[in-house]
């Protein structure tokens, strides 16, 4: 009898990129649910729009590059990128902002470098930073959490805002936006207020900002699930959160009126999303175990520095992109000892 020949190992694989990506999406759901609860329909509309854009752009580029479209689209990596970008953007971001962001993420940062696996930078963060630098005003149009708002935007209202920029009668941007917790602290400090003074005036919530704290905790839970499933390793999230937490602990002990507490740092912004979902992107990150720890520590440190002394309210994106640049070097210097090597 004749048989076809193949190379070892002769077993069906246990893992699958597409399944990994779908599990990441699943792990994002709790955070998305809480975010929608606090910020309304805008979040979901953005997710749908960005998903369609991301898949559309990717299919287009693949067709132009004459690559098979379906196998690549079905790896779900474009969807993950789209969702991560959306979760970093204001909930009522206009459609053109999404389009530009997704374009830079998928077309420029990912496909122009050769597609999944070849991109040196985290695509979602490239999209985010391009938007932050080009449209700083639009990017700070965060709305107040619904629990504090004296307005209500239904699905059709939210759709109208996203696609036409028009608000229902009696409402406008000024009426509905509110600074994010990190923004509040930043501008407060600029005006010479101390942390304790601000704490009395603004919606600090239970731990770190009304709404934000629960969104962060939901992302934390999703992240822990990914850890438990073995989809991400502990090194990046632990390194990132430990660095951010320890630095803010030391500095807030030293000057509690100028530096906010570790809890506020960890739960008041994008730290959890960043630690478990963004900085863990394997393609653009470090790949050795020690390298990943260093990568996480680097992102955490840069984030703290930018938040404390930089020109932007949050620093996760810059931290990730800067560490992306360092990743190949980190890998080179953190090669593990080989069996039998002295």
């Amino acid at each position: 009898m004749k048989f076809q020949i193949d190379s070892s190992p002769h077993l069906p694989p246990v893992n699958d990129v597409s399944r990994l990506m779908r599990q990441v999406l699943l792990a994002l759901l709790p955070g998305i649910a809480v975010a929608s609860w606090y910020f309304g329909w805008g979040v979901l509309i953005n997710l749908v729009v960005a998903t369609l854009l991301a898949v559309g752009f990717e299919a287009l580029i693949l067709a132009i590059r004459r690559r098979p479209v379906v196998p690549v689209i079905s790896d779900y990596s474009a969807v993950v990128t789209a969702w991560l970008l959306v979760l970093a953007l204001p909930p009522l971001a206009p459609w053109w902002l999404l389009t530009i962001g997704v374009f830079f993420a998928i077309v420029v940062a990912k496909q122009l470098y050769g597609g999944l696996g070849y991109n040196p930078f985290n695509p979602a963060m490239v999209g985010y930073v391009v938007l932050l630098i080009s449209f700083p005003a639009t990017m700070t149009n965060w709305m107040a959490p619904t629990t504090l708002a004296d307005f209500h935007l239904g699905l059709s209202d939210a759709l109208r805002v996203t696609f036409t920029g028009e608000f229902p009668p009696g409402l406008d941007w000024d009426a509905i936006t509110a600074a994010t917790p990190l923004d509040t602290v930043r501008s407060g400090l600029r005006l010479g207020e101390s942390i304790s003074e601000m704490q009395d005036q603004i919606p600090f919530g239970l731990l770190a900002g009304e709404g934000w704290e629960w969104i962060s905790i939901a992302f934390l839970l999703g992240g822990l699930w990914l850890l438990w499933k073995g989809i991400i390793d502990w090194q990046v999230p632990v390194g990132l959160l430990a660095a951010l937490g320890l630095l803010s602990a030391v500095f807030s002990l030293y000057d509690p009126e100028y530096f906010s507490s570790p809890l506020y740092q960890l739960l008041g912004g994008g730290a959890m999303l960043g630690a478990f979902f963004i900085a863990t992107d394997p393609v653009s990150g470090s790949t050795t175990p020690l390298g990943r720890l260093l990568f996480g520590i680097g992102v955490g440190t840069i984030t703290f520095v930018i938040r404390s002394w930089g020109g932007y309210p949050d620093g996760i994106a810059f931290g990730v992109l800067l560490m992306n640049m360092a990743a190949p070097m980190i890998d080179e210097y953190t090669r593990p000892r080989v069996y039998g090597e002295r």
Binding site: D6, P12, V283, T287
Partner: peptide, 30 residues
């Protein structure tokens, strides 16, 4: 056929799974 390997290779995503399981402590991806 239920026990054969599959031939639908994608690009390496540098996930490091290979290094985690390598008994020789190599970096299979590199």
């Amino acid at each position: 056929p239920a026990n054969l390997r599959r031939h639908d290779a994608h690009p390496c995503i540098r996930c490091g799974e290979c290094a985690t399981v390598c008994p020789a402590q190599l970096l299979p991806q590199q």
